[in-house]
């Protein structure tokens, strides 16, 4: 019973929404929209669990005085301050000062860290390129050459070297690149469909725990 009911739910809903894809009528569309709304309401409780997990994770660090434990207080305070200000300043309570502080925290604290992390990507790009450069296998060399050509094709320097480079880069993107991506997509499509089917039919059950036994 413990496992049968969830498996039955997955089977019934899975078949229903597969069929729904082929039924354009109004009733079908309304059912789809309503289900998604209901799903959102239902799923907000997962957020409660997730939040509980995060708080527990940091509370343990503080309790065990793990190295740098005081940083855990920073996280907990961040959640409380940002969450509190946002809700007080939001449409439910409309406290102007809270909304102001919330906006500033977002614009001058959260967003800059976000952009800085993104900017770091450029440095990692350099180390990844170096790594690709050192790779010895024949396949890695193919990757490196094609990457180099495409990169040269985008930057003005490439065209300065030889005026045909941008054309070659474009051709690599549009022809062999396209072919490989389509080939991979077929596999992904079949793999994803097979996984969805296995879950709907109850063959893949590791989500129930117990690895399907």
């Amino acid at each position: 019973m413990k496992q049968k009911l969830p498996l039955l739910i997955v089977l019934v809903l899975g078949i229903f929404f597969t069929i729904q894809f082929f039924v354009p009528s109004r009733a079908s569309e309304v059912t789809y929209q309503t289900t998604l709304q209901w799903w959102l309401v239902m799923s907000s409780f997962a957020m409660v669990l997730a939040l509980g997990s995060l708080i527990n994770h940091h509370a343990l660090k503080i309790k065990r005085r793990k190295e740098g434990w005081w940083n855990s207080w920073v996280t907990l305070a961040g959640i409380a301050v940002m969450g509190g200000l946002g809700i007080l300043g939001g449409p439910s309570f409309r406290m102007g000062w809270a909304n102001d502080a919330y906006t500033r925290l977002f614009l001058f604290v959260q967003a800059p860290m976000d952009s800085a992390m993104f900017a770091i990507l450029a440095f990692y790009m350099a180390s990844a390129s170096y790594r690709a450069f050192r790779a010895r296998s024949r396949e890695a060399t193919v990757l490196l050459v094609s990457g180099f050509v495409v990169m040269l094709g985008i930057i003005p320097f490439g065209a300065m070297l030889w005026h045909r480079i941008p054309d070659i880069a474009e051709w690599v993107m549009m022809v062999p690149n396209m072919a490989s991506k389509r080939g991979i997509l077929f596999g992904i499509g079949l793999g994803a469909t097979a996984t969805a089917l296995k879950i709907i039919l109850g063959i893949e059950r590791s989500w129930l725990g117990g690895g399907g036994k």
Partner: peptide, 8 residues
């Protein structure tokens, strides 16, 4: 070749 293109 495709991965190289994405990379570049």
């Amino acid at each position: 070749i495709g991965f190289g293109a994405s990379f570049g």
